[in-house]
Nucleic acid binder design. Structure first.
Lengths: 340, 340
DNA sequence: TGAGCCTTCCAAAGCGCTTTGGCTTTTTTG
DNA sequence: CAAAAAAGCCAAAGCGCTTTGGAAGGCTCA
């Protein structure tokens, strides 16, 4: 069933039917009702390719997916997607993932923009002075960054959580509990979120005249194994920390294992706080010792990003509005006063 | 730069240029070269919407993403996606995720097919007599099922791993080690893979005159917490199993925790085998006691599905070819002879 | 009552591509 | 060497929608 057929059976022109369906004012309400009704009854669905060709709008939002043999998609992605999808569904938006060579995403961005394949894109895990951001900004397609970049002379729309604040709070708590030697097990330190987290920890320590030594900071991809390795390295050091702030629950899993292997206990020998993105399949309260966390649902962020993208597409949102969400500090059994 | 402009500057007709670009035979090789060259030099890219409208092909593969507040996307999805994306990239295919109400995916399938939005779709986590499968089969769009269904009177193309064989092997190993009381911690038992796995375990037990008691089988969404709960329930029973086969590494995490909470040890008191889909962020060899697993990379499966979808789109693959991958049984420290 | 203004609809022109059918040349063939 | 076949190219007709530029008819209002 296409427009032509539909309009023919209604004895109306395609113009009128099209307008009736798309809510244009210059059509009689009575007529509109008739059209709407017939459309629904016959299950008429405008052909998106045709519409796209005519309007240039696609009803899809894009994401460039870095791929490659050695490239692992972040497990957070799926949770973010849950939220995004949930919102997108209610607004008839689809999401198109364009796989790209991790080392050359630019080409793909240019392609999807030039082709008008999508109405908007979002960018995640930005780094300082991230080229994707600069590119997308000049290409002039609506976009939102999930996270933040740094070092640009222009503003841009983003949604981020207060990583610095969160880790500042976590570290401050530990310092207040008497810990003098703090360590940070961070994510990939080329990403802005990791930089912000480190900044937060440093600031909290500095406030009490403490510092974060070179040996007390690790950064690596967030895997269980890397968490373990980092913890081993830290805890076997002569100046082993008495408290660790950790960037992810998955890494915390490894930290806990290391602590055990070394015959130590939490929170007796070591206090531990980790960041929790709220996975349904791994919850901090279910750690051997319930884990204190800085918590922020990445899923909600996904939904919000979708919402703002939709707003931008329809012109309801404009400009470079940045949005920073506060992060909860949830205290559970894994923190205690400094030993000794 | 569009076809018209390009053909104009070459003093050729759009027809010829189009044909030259798309590899049709009725164009002089010399002319083709000229065209190709000019196209590359001017960065000409055919507008996909226009092409889609004209050909009906979209160069995209579709996936209907079940969403909803209470719906969690399986963390396996992202690994599968890694593989899929990796292949898709090399073939200029995009992936469109159409979010749908988890309880009504049919509408969405109909939509994307009717709209010719995608050239092919894949279906994952099928259940017996899965309606999506029946629907897609009648809709006549190329598709591949990742996993298998049951109870249909037609064949369909799929890619699955030998779940039954894998769990049969795992259980057989345990039986050979003298275990009489085996338990199975399974995924959602409405899904075919879970049914197959259960079947495998039962078959292995039956071969030695043993059975899988009602109390020795649990099934739930694969979260750490559910693994823990299941293990607690099993191990606190008067007929506690001496060996457990577990459907996922994430659940195994919970099993290990439960074992510890109960003051038991692996493999002293309990042997444990789990299925490993090969996540980069959680590896069985890094469990407190290295975990024996049935292993199959879900990522490779993703790549293979993409490959077959591409083949189907271009007509290279036809018919209802099913493909079943064998699963490795990897023995590590978590299994031992039955206690006592 | 007739000029001017809405209201409501329509015909037709794109959007950028593919593809059908046909028209020249050139090559082959008996 | 004429007739048939093949090669190489083109004009134009879609694909299904939106949107521009009217036009017909009914109103208002002096």
């Amino acid at each position: 069933m296409n427009l032509k057929q539909l309009s023919h059976m209604l004895s109306l022109s395609q113009t009128t039917v099209s307008r009736a369906l798309n809510g244009y004012p210059e059509v009689n309400e009575e007529t509109r009702r008739r059209v709407m009704d017939a459309a629904k009854r016959h299950g008429y669905r405008p052909n998106p390719s045709a519409r796209r060709l005519a309007t240039g709008k696609s009803g899809m939002i894009g994401y460039v997916l870095p791929t490659g043999n050695a490239v692992d998609i972040d497990p957070h992605f799926v949770e973010f997607l849950s939220g995004l999808g949930d919102y997108a569904r209610s607004h008839e938006l689809d999401l198109v993932l364009s796989p790209a060579d991790a080392d050359d995403q630019e080409t793909t961005y240019r392609r999807i923009v030039a082709n008008r394949q999508v109405d908007a894109v979002y960018i995640s895990s930005p780094r300082p002075a991230d080229r994707r951001l600069a590119l997308v900004n000049t290409l002039g397609i609506p976009f939102i960054v999930h996270g933040r970049s740094e070092g640009f002379d222009f503003d841009y729309p983003y949604l981020d959580i207060d990583n610095e604040g969160a880790f500042h709070e976590a570290a401050r708590l530990l310092v207040q509990l008497g810990h003098k030697r703090l360590a940070l097990i961070n994510g990939d330190d080329r990403e802005t979120f990791a930089i912000h987290r480190e900044r937060g920890v440093r600031r909290a320590l500095a406030a009490s005249g403490l510092t974060l030594g070179e040996r007390h900071i690790c950064s690596a991809t967030m895997t269980e194994e890397n968490g373990y390795r980092a913890a081993r390295r830290l805890l076997e050091d002569s100046e082993a920390p008495t408290a660790i702030v950790c960037s992810s629950l998955i890494m915390a899993l490894g930290v806990v294992r290391a602590v055990r292997d070394l015959g130590l206990t939490i929170p007796g020998d070591l206090s531990l706080v980790a960041h929790d993105d709220v996975f349904p399949w791994l919850r901090p309260e279910n750690f051997p010792v319930p884990l204190s966390t800085t918590r922020s649902s990445i899923r909600l962020a996904g939904a919000r990003v979708a919402e703002r993208l939709a707003a931008r597409i329809s012109g309801l949102e404009e400009g470079a509005r940045g949005e920073v969400w506060p992060v909860d500090l949830v205290i559970r059994g894994s923190v205690a006063g400094a030993p000794g």
